[in-house]
Amino acid sequence: MDINTKLLKKNAFRVTKKRGMTASRVRVPGGHLEAIYLPLLQNIAETYGNGTVHITSRQGFEIPGIAFENMPQVNELLQPIIEGLDINQQVPGKGYSAAGTRNVVACIGNRVCPYACYDTTGFAQRIEKAIFPNDLHFKIALTGCPNDCAKVRMHDFGIMGMTEPQYNIDRCVNCGACVKVCKKKSVGALQEVNYKVKRNADKCIGCGECVLACPTRAWTRGKQKLYRFTLFGRTGKKNPRLGEDFIKWVDEDSIIKIILNTYDYVDSYIDPAAPGGKEHIGYIVDRTGFEEFLTWAMKDVQLPEIAEVYTPIYWKGVKY
């Protein structure tokens, strides 16, 4: 048997424990899909796989137990899923065009969750369209609010929904619900002053708990969708660590631009000898220094006035 393992990996298959057998990874940007695609996955698993499907840690599907020789047929059966989920593709019918840039993960977001500050799936799909296909090893996750159910600080880029609370003082009856909830469930950024509420904007993390708690709509959500953007968290062997705050109150367009700029930066600075062409971005930044990364990342980025950039950034984590 002669199989180019480098190519099959780029095609979103993998080398498995069992000789001659592979598994197919299905991207589901934002982890949300129409149920009509589930029978198609079932068909692939039952026709060419071992009849099981694994739900991956990055919200995709992995269909194991596929013989290498059946990869072309599997790719054909994947085509309606790839098209249906609007995945960018170089050659139709030939499966996924890359695997390095991983599936974009998102919590369920404001299609369902009351806490979410935006449509996480929609933004995940927008990011997927902007960055895929790409062989570089990028991991991106989105979460609807600072509860961070998607654990975005474990990823290269973490996107956390925020809402800038708007206070209509004339609708406030000083019931105390917002002050109480902010203290108990969030950061205690609200204080009663003269029977009204003062917000400490520096302290506020934009979770929106005050808006949810307010019984009179004195607190409402800001019109602009804004985010907390975290950088270069990672799992892995050498130095697993949490992503650190990069920009607070950043907008969608700037986030996408910064991610795309980072692809250029990594292209220039990735270790040419990196095993499998795979190096976590954070290690590259450790090498070039944060300032160099910043110069590349912020190219042509117009941040909204409210945005706060944290610089320099120091990461912690476990070092082995």
């Binding site: 404001n110 009351p114 979410a116 500050c117 935006y118 449509d119 929904g161 809402t163 929106g208 808006v211 949810l212 307010c214 709509r217 409402t220 959500r221 019109k223």
Partner: peptide, 15 residues
Amino acid sequence: RMIGGGAFSDTNSVR
């Protein structure tokens, strides 16, 4: 209709 005036994100409120 208050656009974006609901308690949840991307919801409106009639007030």
